[in-house]
Write a protein that binds this DNA or RNA. Structure first.
Lengths: 200, 200
DNA sequence: AGAAACAGACCGACCGGTCGGAATGATAAT
DNA sequence: ATTATCATTCCGACCGGTCGGTCTGTTTCT
């Protein structure tokens, strides 16, 4: 696709600029011209690398989801027991809220677009269902290892994902309204309190 | 404001049309002309009743939040104990998900706009903080009546609101992916399982 | 040379909002 | 009862500006 080395760098600058602008102003409020200005790139270069503004958006979405994938998988692999893994993921939330300072709003853009745009929806739903399955698998593993009571894994997974999604949305709207990292910890603690077995 | 009876009806038709179109296509993708077409109203009439497209949006937001207010208050008043009230609210979710079929997407529009538009943000945050306080008060009442353990009411309230927000967002993205009403029930059940006292 | 990468003027569509005036209907003077 | 008056309500052509995307080159590398 890119045969000259500097092409890849241009491509990357476009993606970075788009991500920042989408996060700050929203997808619709961000013009292609504005992305080009931030990236120090001409419109010709933009449309040389991407067929449309939406294509940039979709690539950002896929990168975002892919990274979330690997992060979750890494934590799961590094935890001894399932409850410990869940608690550690909640702890990860703290990092997400501070590190991804200006990055979080784009999550909202993804979700909004998914609600109206079939192409975005398909990209989103595919990953999303995997998250449900990911947590359901964790619960099952917890039941198998005896650290979690034999409840319905799917429903519990949906509760956990709901909690996570809601936390992100609230952290977005009211970043300083609470210590969202701590709320995440507490939420997971409550859930584990309810579904965890005593003999661990 | 409206001195002739038919004016009020026109105003109402505009609001209804805008709500449907915002929900279906999103705020930005909805043109004023489209709203007028749906409402069988001219552009002149539109701008006679509203100063801008955003004003319509804000009025819809305030109506939406006000109704949520009264609904929550009604349930709280009708419940004997705090845990019972919370469970009943979770049960309400079922109605929300089916009745507000096409209405839910507008919730996402509200949130997205709040993230970028100061005017929308202020309207949103005011109500939103009241919800946090509302649930925190419920928890406090529960502690006072002895049905809930003496934990931090604010954090618990934030967990509950997170769960609620996350449920709505997931119901939006994947309406048939789960029985979201039941997930709501189960989520609340877990939380109560963790924070409820045994002597009730 | 020749393909890939880039530049930026340009285009047509669209959109929020304006404006001058036409219908409507209540009120009051005749 | 009829007409004159007048604010309210509504109409829709129109405007200024923006935006995504195209196109015709020019530059940069192999």
């Amino acid at each position: 696709m890119s045969q000259q080395p500097r092409a890849e760098e241009t491509r990357s600058r476009i993606l970075t600029a788009a991500q920042e602008s989408f996060a700050r102003y929203g997808y619709d409020a961000t013009g292609v011209a504005e992305i080009c200005r931030l990236a120090n790139v001409s419109k010709g270069a933009f449309y040389h690398h991407f067929p449309s503004k939406q294509a940039v958006f979709l690539e950002l979405l896929n990168r975002w989801l892919a990274e979330l994938d690997t992060q979750l998988e890494t934590v799961r692999a590094s935890a001894e027991t399932v409850p410990e893994g869940l608690v550690r993921m909640a702890g990860m939330a703290r990092l997400v809220f501070q590190a991804a300072d200006g990055q979080l709003p784009i999550f909202l853009e993804f979700w909004t677009k998914a609600a109206h745009d079939p192409a975005v929806w398909q990209a989103m739903i595919a990953h999303y269902r995997r998250y449900q399955a990911f947590f359901a698998d964790m619960i099952k593993a917890g039941i198998a290892e005896g650290t979690i009571l034999p409840i319905e894994p799917e429903t519990t997974a949906q509760v956990i994902v709901s909690l996570a999604v809601g936390l992100v949305l609230q952290g977005l709207l009211d970043p300083h309204g609470a210590d969202w990292g701590q709320v995440a910890q507490e939420g997971i603690r409550m859930i584990l309190d309810s579904i965890g077995s005593n003999d661990q």
